[in-house]
Amino acid sequence: MNFYAVRAIYKFEMARTWRTLMQSIASPVLSTSLYFIVFGSAIGSRMVAIDGVEYGAFIIPGLVMFTLLTQSISNASFGIYFPRFSGTIYELLSAPVSFVEILMGYVGAAATKSIIVGILILITARFFVDYHIEHPLWMVSFLILTSITFSLFGFIIGVWADGFEKLQLIPLMVITPLAFLGGSFYSINMLPPIWHTITLFNPVVYLISGFRWSFYGVADVNVAVSLAMTALFLLLCLAAVWWIFKTGYRLKT
């Protein structure tokens, strides 16, 4: 195992985060906090509680999960896309590193950034909304697992994309609608039966539901199913990355 390489990639990526602190950390924390201010403090008090949870507190797990997904994808996709764009990918390909080590560096850094953002959002939310965490260990586990899984997904997008537009395509056109329609702002049990059934095909439902369970002990779907779905997506992403490195897809000619 080339640990020096893993550390070099990880440090390199984290240095970019600190260099672009406003964009990497402050911006997502601020934009998510606006939701707490508007839906939590301002109009949350006029909304009815859902599953016995105040509305302002109810939306916190969904919003954190939404930010976690978009940030993980953006961080990891940009991390691997930029060397491809600038041509410095040659160094990565000619270095004595395995694909596991490359993943550990890039995905590890992307997930770290997402986790930092997630924790900062939770801390910020505490200023506006009163919430509690019933299962803190599970909450942290979901936070880490989701960050890693979607950083892997972001890595795949970064390899697939052949322009900056495509880099933004999945987070904006796919993840954002799925997160908004996946129970970030409501319980899917509030939906009419047909829409409830359709919503169950949305993978983000399972992430938000599981994460919300770790906070309040209430969930739209069984927490074991949430975990299984997240693990399944993780395995699918790992298989895709393994194939990318085996074939050199969009990395090697």
Binding site: Y4, A8, A15, S86, G87, T88, Y90, A95, P96, V97
Partner: peptide, 20 residues
């Protein structure tokens, strides 16, 4: 092909680490 935003020192140090 260079890491335009990196300093010379960190770019060269990065390469050393990458090569183990």
């Amino acid at each position: 092909s260079t890491d335009a935003f990196e300093s010379v020192w960190s770019a060269v140090s990065f390469s050393r680490g990458l090569y183990g």
